[in-house]
Design a binder for these strands. Sequence first.
RNA 1: UGUCCCAUGGUGUAAUGGCAGCACUCCGGUUUUUGGUACCGUCAGUCAAGGUUCGAGUCCUUGUGGGACAA
Length: 392
Amino acid sequence: MKKVIVGLSGGVDSSVAALLLKEQGYDVEGLFMVNWHDRTGTLTSNCTWEDDWLLAQMVAKSIDIPISKVDLSEDYRTRVVDYMFSEYEKGRTPNPDVLCNREIKFDVFLEEALKLGADYVATGHYCRKGEKDEEYQLLAGLDGNKDQSYFLCQLTQQQLAPALFPIGHLEKREVREIAEKAALPTASRKDSQGICFVGKVDLPTFLQQKLQPRKGNVIEIFPTQHLFNEIDRSKFSKDELLKLDCAPYDYSKVFGKKVGEHNGAHYYTVGQRKGLNIGGYKEPLFVIGTNVDRNSVFVGEGHEHPGLNRKGLFVKQEEIHWVRPSQKMEIGQERSFDVRIRYRQPLQKATLFQREEGLYILFAEKQRAITAGQFVAWYNGDDLIGSGVIDA
RNA sequence: UGUCCCAUGGUGUAAUGGCAGCACUCCGGUUUUUGGUACCGUCAGUCAAGGUUCGAGUCCUUGUGGGACAA
């Protein structure tokens, strides 16, 4: 009998994953991860890992599987949280949960599970595993509303090999129903939110552990800025145009009007509306850029501000990751994909251009708030082909 | 100093003498395994003192504060 170790989190999804595997006849064991002890800046003070551990144990008992726990908080701190601070410090906006999957759940945790003699490792992610062209596929979950493949966009073939996603073909509603029928103690437990294992935090407060507040100016950039003028496209080569279309605007050298003050540019991210403390406008102000060296936050009025909507983005060569190595593009090649730049975003038509320095991604429609440090993932329909960190 | 104009939530603005409304901000909530977005909701105002009127944000007087022109 094949042995599967399930990452039981104390939530409904991993509970049902374990239950289904058990019903399918696997030798199932639960393994609970402790990744975070600190509560600094946490909003849900009553929601600590102890509660989750208790729930996970109750679930294990309920479906009659052994369970143990493993403390990975050391790795979580160095490989997820430190990365988070360092990215914010550089003025970029990281995605800790993508890192958590790559570095913890499908790395350290996976190793632990294999040490315990597991043939497979399962999680409660809404995504599916397939096989094609002699490699594993990471497929979107069938519940289009819950699809979590985006969070696994950095996994490798080696990480995918022992993985099982028992609930990827189900709708959230069905998962809850299964949990209810089996009377699992997690059946009606609220879905988790916020940074996984840390929870919902007030980000500026959380970041203040490492990043000191520093007063700086909020500067409004007007949509009439010459920066936004259409260029004469006949004067440039195709590759020059590609670079221009995929480059961010540089606001630090153009005229802008000081409209307020902030406590540190590194606390802000592109597309952000709340927290600027500036009123009196007809339409809301959005952050359209930050500069941590000058400690400036650049804002623009309204959803349609040209600085907020861009045609393309760039991923550095060393940041490109192919979930499906067979699909890797050659230098000079261009291909169409379905792309998203954030969780739950409907897939966007885009063309990828592989160049020596990296990947240029040009969208059919302008994209709102393209953010450095976030992940871009490209799909072929359901099939997550690759991903990378947005450089700019 | 003379004349004129203005004063409404934190901000920007509406209201023939007849229930002070809208937008932005803030705060709270919903959605969301990242940040962010979106959606819903609450709080909050007629510069001060008198007067006219059934009734004043609105008209009159004075004061206070700001702006413009004049020298």
